[in-house]
C-alpha cells in the first residue's frame, strides 16, 4: 500500500488545481447549469482495500480544500464525504466474481475494463452531484432544479472523467 501513497497525493493536488483553476472558471463563465466536478475522481481512485472510514474522511478533506476556493465552506466537504461512503456501496454492488483482490489496487479501467469502469464512475458521479446540488439548494422544494443540474453536470463531468482516465490511465 505504501507505494500507492504518492500517486494519490499527486492526484489530490492535481485534481484540486484543475478543478479551481480551469473547471470552476467554465461554470462561472457559462452558467450555473454547467458544472464539471472532476475532483471526486481522487476519491474513486483511492485504493480499493482502504477501509471505508478513511475514504469518507479523505473525501471530506478534498471537498473542504475545494470549498476554500469556491467560498462554499462545508458544501463540497459534505458531498465528498458522501461520495466516500457511496463509493464503498457502489464497489460492493459491482464487485467482480471472487471479490476484489490485492491484484487490482484501484478501480480504474486498466484493471477492470472500460465497461465496468464507466458503470461504476457513472453511478459514483450521479451520487456525488445529486448530493452536492441538494445541499446547495438545501431544500427539496427545488427538486426539479436539483435533478436538472445533476443531469447536466453529470453529462459534462463524465466527458472529463473519460478524458482524464484515458489520458493518465492510472494504475495505482
Amino acid at each position: 500500500m505504501n507505494n500507492s501513497i504518492f500517486p494519490n497525493i499527486w492526484r489530490f493536488f492535481g485534481l484540486v488545481v484543475l478543478q479551481v483553476l480551469l473547471l470552476q472558471q467554465i461554470t462561472l463563465s457559462i452558467g450555473p447549469y454547467f458544472n464539471i466536478l472532476l475532483y471526486p475522481l481522487f476519491i474513486l481512485f483511492l485504493p480499493i482495500q482502504l477501509p471505508a472510514p478513511y475514504v469518507v474522511l479523505l473525501g471530506g478533506l478534498i471537498g473542504m480544500v475545494v470549498d476554500f476556493f469556491y467560498g462554499t465552506l462545508g458544501l463540497h466537504a459534505s458531498a465528498g464525504a458522501f461520495s466516500g461512503f457511496a463509493r464503498s456501496v457502489i464497489l460492493a454492488t459491482f464487485e467482480p466474481k471472487g471479490g476484489f483482490t490485492g491484484k487490482e489496487p484501484i478501480a480504474s479501467p486498466a484493471y477492470f475494463g472500460w465497461r465496468w469502469y464507466l458503470q461504476v464512475a457513472g453511478f459514483f458521479f450521479v451520487a456525488h452531484l445529486f448530493w452536492y446540488f441538494s445541499v446547495m439548494d438545501f431544500t427539496f422544494v427545488y427538486f426539479t432544479r436539483i435533478t436538472l443540474k445533476t443531469l447536466a453536470g453529470w453529462g459534462l463531468t463524465m466527458i472529463f472523467v473519460v478524458l482524464y482516465s484515458a489520458l493518465f490511465n492510472p494504475k495505482s
Binding site: V56, L73, A81
Partner: peptide, 13 residues
C-alpha cells in the same frame, strides 16, 4: 464516519 462528517459539514454549511 460518514454521519459524523456530515453532521460537522452541515454545521459548517
Amino acid at each position: 464516519t460518514f454521519v459524523l462528517v456530515e453532521v460537522l459539514c452541515f454545521y459548517i454549511i
